[in-house]
Amino acid sequence: MSTGSYIRKRSRPLQVYAIIFIIVLYVPVLFIPLFSFNDSIYVRFPLEGFTLKWYVELFQRDAVWNSLMNSVRVGVAVSVISTLFGIFAAKAIARYRFPGRGPLVGFIMLPLVVPLIIFGVALLVLLSRLGIPLSLWTVGLGHLIVCMPFSIATLLPRFEGFEPALEEASADLGENALWTFWRVTLPMIFPGVVASLMLTFTVSFDEFIMAFFLNGTQPTLPIYIWGQLRFPQEFPSVLALSSFVIAASFVIVFIGLWINRGAHAGTIKVE
């Protein structure tokens, strides 16, 4: 037996626990798509039979399409803006030492921890005092607060695993700051940028609380779903719509996390 092998020893109970854990993590969510194909307006066993009618019915609703487009518009704008801001902020945090760096980073990451209802309420009060009407713009503003910490946290490991000498070499070879960024920095952090765009889009697309307080007359998709939850007869179509949202989110997030997987393992290497 080699040294340290007792630490590497397999632990059967732990392995079983881990597998049960993953199952419990996913199964409740999977009941939503399961029942969305069920041919009954009741969500209960036994299943009545396979149907796509709840999905077909959704396609014919203008309100669904409108709220979907609203969510996509807000999501795209928020993901692009928060990623742009995130690139600068992540570079500043990873590369430079400056006074107050720790507390400032803590402040930026605050929205990850503080209950969003408080940010939502505070922004609502400010906007109403300023006389700014609630709209998709105000929802987007709220989502930017939520998404910026995610964007920075996604991009930060990219900058930390990135050799500053590359940028310096580019500058020494006569490129200006803009071209250095375009030809050296951006290609190096590109997986992080794509991941940040995809993750922040999903966070905005799925976000409910901020949108709940800040939306005007145009609902986003989660707000529309929330409104439909009041009507029992709408339950199956809510399940179908939710399945669509969950599937879309899972695919986008999975691709995003996978593209950026090297960032956590510290495997970003200079070729």
Partner: peptide, 23 residues
Amino acid sequence: LPFWTSYLLRVFAWKVVLGYEGV
């Protein structure tokens, strides 16, 4: 992965599971 996806819908899933006529 699940944590990145809709909080509203993950909570809603438990309503389906725990409901009076639920799972």
